[in-house]
Amino acid sequence: MSQILRVEGLYKTFGHGDIFRDVSFTLDSGETIGLFGMSGSGKSTLGRCIVGLERCTSGKIYFEGDDVSTVPKKMRPLLRTKMQMIFQHPEISFDPRRRLIDSVTEPLVYHTKQDQQDVFRSLFPLIEAVGLHHQLFEKYPGQLSGGELQRAMMVRIYSLSPKLIVADEPTSMLDMSVQAQVLNLMKDLQQKNNTACVFISHDPEVMQIMCDRIGIITDGTCTLVEKEEFDDWVSYMGS
């Protein structure tokens, strides 16, 4: 088990206040850490900062031991592919006017300069693993359900063989049974590929199933707790 991610002292301020302060934790490969908080607690922003889609005001992020800010520009795209993100709204996670086959093969086509059909064929085992049929990818995102889109998104993400996945409330817009499908699938793929995961959610029951450790975000601070403590904390908050 190697350490994939280490964040130290992450701060993000926005105008008058802090979105989050002094966030620090480590994450090993295959491990899942949860970021739990209510709407507006800053957990999504934290997730985007970890993946590099937003910049923190201060603090350091180490990916596989290297400080991400010191990575040379040429290596940055490749570094990006190792840290992927899955979003909350499946219907807008794909370019609405391109077929899924284009969207799903795009990253690999760009990075490896291969032909789209070759890339798509190489993704067949992954497509089967997520329980979709490759004919489905001829459709446009608007023609698919939320659950199918999230699964297609996993094909795209895992096509890049990431070491870390940040999941930002991936199932909060999905129905219960679809959520069960998608989350079970995520866990499965994560175990098979030994991927580390930062799982962001506001649903404590889902956190209890998906995560090994949980960071509770309240008022901008992140408190790390173990699963058992989290259970107690949730029952306490519920009363």
């Binding site: 985007r48 993946v51 590099g52 889609l53 940055r76 795209p77 490749l78 570094l79 990006r80 592919t81 840290m83 992927q84 993100m85 979003f87 909350q88 709204h89 807008i92 996670s93 794909f94 370019d95 609405p96 391109r98 969207s103 795009e106 990253p107 760009y110 990075h111 998104m153 795209r156 890049l160």
Partner: peptide, 20 residues
């Protein structure tokens, strides 16, 4: 989200703007 997703996939700015 789909633009963020493209950025996360390491696609360059000009690609994202012109194609997406």
């Amino acid at each position: 989200d789909y633009v963020l997703s493209s950025r996360a996939a390491g696609l360059p700015g000009w690609w994202i703007v012109t194609k997406h």
